[in-house]
Amino acid sequence: MASSSSSPSSKKGWMSGNFSRIAARVYFVLIIFQIPLFRIPCRSGICTTPIQVTSSQLIANEIFPPSVVKTLLFPGAVVHGLVTNMSLPNWNSLLDMYNLTGAKNASPAVDLQRLEVLAGSYFSVAGALVGLISPGRMTLFGTLLVVWGLVKEGVLGKNASADPAQSVYVYPTIVIALVCAFSSITYNVKKAATRGQVATIAKPLKSSAKSKLK
């Protein structure tokens, strides 16, 4: 008589996969709703989230139309408006709200000094969007780049500013982002390890079968 209950290994795999999806969604909330992770100078002035860094670059280099950038910024702007003064942002003045109208005229040197944070922000935003469909390593790669750029800034301190409001600062929320980035790929790593074990076991069986035929 077949047992109706599932095996412990299948339950463990289901829980692991479910946990990675939850972690990917938490990471999506942190990035898309613009929870502050750090504070660095950028082309628009001061950026506190990967989306703000990415948006300033997209506007400055005219890679995408302003409407695409506004779409990225709008969810976070709504949350910020509701939390601060219980109002919704104006779509038409969204770029002014983030001080992005003059980003094209700003010097690129401020971003070139922090290439790791810039590249990591791109990967973090893209990974947050893709992670809703299929959690992967892009979020982890982007977050690690951002963390490395901030650590390098703190250790070397070459671009440190005398003004505290302009200096680089790391918020504790970046730890949550890093944990979520690691957790979102846990299921994929275990799956790859299982496949590797199966392949290792199958090779001796295949060779022993050939030796018997000889």
Rank of each mutant, 00 (worst) to 15 (best):
L58T: 10
Q113C: 11
G127A: 10
V130E: 06
A126D: 01
K70T: 08
M86W: 10
L100D: 00
N105F: 05
M138C: 10
A60N: 07
Y122E: 06
T101C: 08
G127F: 04
L115D: 08
L88E: 05
S134K: 10
L115K: 12
V79Q: 06
A109R: 08
N99M: 09
G131Y: 01
E116N: 12
L72A: 05
V130Q: 06
M97I: 06
P65M: 07
V110I: 15
D111E: 14
N61K: 14
A109I: 12
A109E: 12
G76K: 01
L73P: 03
M86D: 13
R137C: 10
V130M: 09
G76C: 08
V125L: 09
D111P: 01
T84G: 04
N85H: 14
S93W: 04
T139N: 14
T84V: 15
V68W: 13
W91D: 04
L82F: 13
P108I: 14
S87C: 09
F64R: 08
G120Q: 03
Q113D: 13
D96H: 12
P75C: 11
V130Y: 10
L72P: 00
S107A: 13
L82K: 08
G127T: 06
S107K: 04
R114C: 06
G131C: 05
P89Q: 11
A106R: 03
V125Y: 01
V130S: 07
V78E: 05
L72R: 01
E62H: 14
S134R: 12
L94P: 00
T139W: 02
V130R: 04
G81V: 04
S134F: 11
F123L: 15
V69G: 00
L112E: 12
T84S: 15
S107Q: 07
P66M: 05
G127S: 07
A126Y: 05
L140F: 10
F123C: 14
S107R: 06
L115R: 12
A109F: 03
T84M: 13
I63E: 08
D96R: 12
L72S: 01
V130P: 01
V68M: 12
L82D: 07
L118R: 07
S121R: 00
Q113K: 14
L112D: 11
L129H: 02
K104Y: 01
T71D: 10
S124L: 12
Y98S: 04
T84L: 13
S134G: 02
G102V: 01
I133R: 07
T71E: 11
G120E: 02
L94M: 04
A109P: 00
Q113A: 14
D96I: 03
H80N: 11
D111S: 12
M97A: 07
A106I: 09
T84R: 15
F64M: 15
W91T: 02
L140I: 04
K104P: 06
D111L: 05
R137K: 13
A60C: 13
M97K: 11
G120T: 02
F74W: 15
E62G: 12
L95A: 05
E62Q: 15
M86K: 14
L140C: 05
L82A: 09
G120A: 07
P135W: 03
L58D: 07
T139H: 08
L129A: 07
G127Y: 03
S87F: 04
L132C: 11
L112P: 04
L112Q: 13
P65D: 13
P108L: 14
L132K: 08
I63F: 13
P65V: 09
K104L: 08
G142Q: 03
K104H: 07
L73I: 11
L100K: 01
E116Y: 07
